[in-house]
Write a protein that binds this DNA or RNA. Structure first.
Lengths: 115, 115
DNA sequence: TAACGATATGTTTGTAAATGAATAACGACA
DNA sequence: TGTCGTTATTCATTTACAAACATATCGTTA
């Protein structure tokens, strides 16, 4: 009997600021972990990425948005940390809302397919 | 006056065969150029990619689809070439149709956004 | 004011991926 | 039956990217 492969569709979306990538699912996840852990360093550790890369992502996001998504918090007993701004929360929300809508749309369209 | 960045949304979709990537925009473009030029070698040249990479993409596509999307055509005055099968044409069509629908959907949703 | 752990940044190291060269095999056609 | 320019495949080399390391700087708190 002939093999019959089950196909499925995946997708990704990105927000661009002009020509520059501004926000994708990876950066959204990073923002969420900064919220959860209180610092870029710990967020990076959770995601098993280098602090350097995480920091660069944050720096790019901040540079390419109208107002910073993350603000540093130096000093203090714990040595400091980073906080996600209101603009950051809004960016997460906007991204995830659109992503969910696209997911549902693609699921509906894919069900119509006969491959 | 404050800078005001214009944001826009980009996206990509992929067809998967189980866990394996099967078709994306790059491979669709490769298929189109194989149709246009009549060979993998010339298609690769047009896309400025190595023949090796192009050939591997074709091999993967063929291995992961129910029936081959590309068939070799050895011999002849021109030395041979490659042809895209009916299944290949259908795959291109299916991919582009879905991609266009998603594009329109995202455009409509993005117009609602105020970032 | 000393200490802490985070941010911020340059430099080096290591590794995976892409490239290029080189070559064998193929088979219709003239 | 010789010719042609493909397909198909290998191997060494280069390139690009990510990780690792090192270190300066910061500012609140005890």
């Amino acid at each position: 009997m002939k093999k019959k492969i089950k196909y499925n569709v995946s997708f990704r979306i990105w927000f661009y600021a002009g020509e520059n990538k501004f926000l994708g699912i990876g950066r959204v996840e990073l923002l969420e972990r900064i919220i959860k852990t209180g610092s870029i360093a710990n967020a990076a550790k959770e995601m098993k990425m280098s602090y350097r890369q995480a920091w660069q992502m944050v720096a790019e996001m901040n540079a390419r948005s109208n107002s910073p998504l993350v603000e540093k918090q130096l000093g203090g007993k714990s040595g400091g940390g980073a906080i996600v701004t209101k603009a950051g929360f809004q960016a997460i929300e906007t991204f995830q809302t659109l992503e969910n809508k696209v997911r549902i749309f693609i699921e509906n369209e894919t069900n119509k397919l006969t491959m």
